[in-house]
Every structure is written in structure tokens, then in C-alpha cells.
């Protein structure tokens, strides 16, 4: 999960770093054909890796999704049965719904905090040490993050509840209560990823010509006004990109839930779609069914990616 998220984000980093390349490559379009041949040569290693590690498993996954397969007996072809069953499986739909709930909590809070942090970094301080510190939570492995917060937020023995109790506010079962568990997991991951997102947005803010701020200052605009009228509109393309990529990463939440659910967590209230697939595949050994669910998820993510592409194209003219 983590690698996929990280990959998605490094694409963002590239985009953020060189947004002006888009125009340049358009001008280069009419080059002789030999360049393309050379390009394909260079692409071969990547394509081979893609074919072996993504293409082939994906094709096999599609085949398995049409079979009844428990890993031990040979797969038996069942046609679209798995998909039909999936459509009627309340657990599957519940898992999707829970995932969407998580994504909303996680993305909204993460984007707001990240935007605020980025703006502060941009306008207030440019200390490298501070920027590095923001990244710290992101460097901690997700499982460690989850364990750390499970201890801190424990309903009975956790430090946070000790504080709440000392203030006579009553304790909260952050991970134990079905009502609180998902918001808690969402906020824990927000804590872990806000720094990174903020850094991406900050990089985007650096692209905004400083003279805009100078003229605004001369015109007597305050910081809030400048944020609203300069930063936000100028940042829009980067913001859109970061938003959609984080969204896809967020959809793939697994590790925090797996750790929280492996303890005696809030049961079905946090069983997200990746966890559903994992259980079907590796706990119940319904490989075929799990493959079908994974493919449906891939489809959902595919739709989100198309949205991402559309947003990207729309944003291009914005920066030019």
C-alpha cells in the first residue's frame, strides 16, 4: 500500500517540479521518427518489469476471478458467478461504504491541514529544519504509526484518556467504539501524511511568482486576502493533482485497519475494502472471489484515475 502511495506521490513531485515542460513537449511533437524508436528501446526494461510484475498477475487475477479457487485444489471455471455473488454480498458493499467514509474523513482533514501548513511555511518561515520535521511522521512505517496510536489512544490504559479523565471529560474508546474507530483511523493517517502533502503543496506555492504578492501588498491586501485571491487560484492545478492522487492512495487504506482490527477493534465498522479482499483471499482462502473483488476495486480506482486525468488536462491551461 505504502509503495503505491509513495509512487503516486513521486509522480506528483515531478509534475510539481516541472509544470512548464508540458508546453515544451508540445512544440517538439514534429520530430523525426527515429527518436521514438530509441525511446522504445529505453522503455523496454520498464515495460518488461510492468509486464512481468503487473501485467501477468493482472491477467491471472482476471482468470482467477472467473474461477472457484482455494489455492489448494485446481481452479474450477465458474463464469461470472463470483461477480454475481459480489453484487449481492452486503459485506462487500458495506466495506466499500466504510472505505468511502474513511476517504472523506482522511482527505478533507489532510488537505485542510496541509494547506494551512504549506501556507505558513510559504509566507512565514522557510526554515529547512522545520520542513524536515514535518516529514517525520511520514517516515515512520504505517504499522508503527498504528501501534503507537493504539497505545496512546487506548480506552482504558491510554495516555490521552488519562488526560481526558483528569479534566473530568470522560473517556473515549477511540479504537474500541464503532462510532469512533473510523474517524480515529482517518485522523491517525492524516497525522502521518499531512506533512508530506503539505510539502507538495508548498512546492507548488513556490511556483507562484513572488511579484504577485508584492503588488498585492502594495495594494494593501492582508495575508488572508492574499491567500484567497492569489495562493488558492494559482495553486489550483497542483491542488487538484495532489487531491486526486491522495484520494486514490487513501482508497487503498489497509495497514492501519489491519493492525487495529487485529487487536480487538470495532469489528465491521472499520472493515475497509482492502481488508475485505485480504480476508477473503488469505483467511478464508476464497481466491477467486477475492480476485473478483480486487478487479471491481481496480475498476473503481480506474474511474477515479480518469477523473484525475480530466482534472489534469483542465488544469494545464491554468498555469501556462
Amino acid at each position: 500500500m505504502r509503495t503505491m502511495r509513495a509512487e503516486g506521490r513521486s509522480q506528483v513531485a515531478e509534475q510539481v517540479a516541472e509544470p512548464s515542460d508540458a508546453g515544451a513537449s508540445r512544440r517538439r511533437r514534429a520530430r523525426p521518427r527515429d527518436d521514438r524508436r530509441a525511446a522504445w528501446l529505453f522503455l523496454i526494461p520498464v515495460l518488461a518489469g510492468f509486464a512481468i510484475f503487473y501485467g501477468y498477475p493482472a491477467v491471472r487475477g482476471f482468470w482467477y476471478s472467473l474461477t472457484d479457487y482455494n489455492l489448494l485444489s485446481p481452479p474450477a471455471y465458474v463464469g461470472a458467478d463470483n461477480y454475481a455473488k459480489l453484487a449481492q454480498d452486503p459485506q462487500f458493499w458495506h466495506a466499500l461504504l466504510v472505505t468511502v467514509y474513511y476517504v472523506v474523513i482522511n482527505i478533507v482533514s489532510q488537505m485542510l491541514f496541509a494547506l494551512l501548513l504549506a501556507a505558513l511555511m510559504h509566507r512565514l518561515t522557510r526554515s529547512v529544519a522545520l520542513r524536515a520535521m514535518l516529514l517525520l511522521p511520514w517516515l515512520v512505517p504505517n504499522v508503527t504509526v498504528a501501534l503507537l496510536w493504539i497505545w496512546l489512544l487506548d480506552a482504558d490504559l491510554g495516555f490521552v484518556n488519562h488526560l481526558l479523565k483528569a479534566l473530568d471529560l470522560g473517556t473515549v474508546g477511540f479504537f474500541a467504539s464503532p462510532d469512533w474507530a473510523m474517524p480515529t483511523i482517518g485522523m491517525v493517517n492524516t497525522w502521518a501524511y499531512t506533512g508530506y502533502t503539505a510539502l507538495l503543496l508548498y512546492a507548488g506555492m513556490l511556483q507562484i511568482p513572488p511579484h504577485l504578492y508584492e503588488s498585492a501588498a502594495i495594494d494593501g491586501a492582508g495575508e488572508v486576502r492574499m491567500f484567497r485571491s492569489i495562493t488558492l487560484p494559482m495553486l489550483r492545478p497542483v491542488l487538484a493533482l495532489v487531491l486526486v492522487v491522495s484520494l486514490i492512495g487513501s482508497f487503498q487504506i489497509f495497514d492501519t485497519v489491519a493492525v487495529a482490527a487485529a487487536g480487538r477493534g470495532a469489528g465491521s465498522a472499520i472493515r475497509v475494502i482492502y481488508y475485505f479482499i485480504y480476508q477473503q483471499a488469505f483467511q478464508y482462502f476464497h481466491m477467486g472471489y477475492a480476485s473478483a473483488a480486487a478487479l471491481v476495486l481496480a475498476l473503481v480506482l480506474g474511474v477515479l484515475t480518469v477523473v484525475q486525468m480530466l482534472l489534469l488536462r483542465a488544469s494545464r491551461s491554468d498555469l501556462a
Binding site: 493504539i150 497505545w151 487506548d154 480506552a155 482504558d156 490504559l157 491510554g158 473517556t171 473515549v172 474508546g173 479504537f175 474500541a176 467504539s177 464503532p178 462510532d179 469512533w180 487495529a260 487487536g263 480487538r264 477493534g265 470495532a266
Partner: peptide, 20 residues
Amino acid sequence: APKFDKQSTLGRDAVLNAGK
């Protein structure tokens, strides 16, 4: 007995060892 949604998720042994 503790309420389910306010019960420690760290396991009964942790709660017993903490004297709670």
C-alpha cells in the same frame, strides 16, 4: 465490567497487569 466501546483494545492481560 467495562463497556465494550470503552474497553481497552490492548488485551485483558494488559488491563489486569495495570491493576484495573
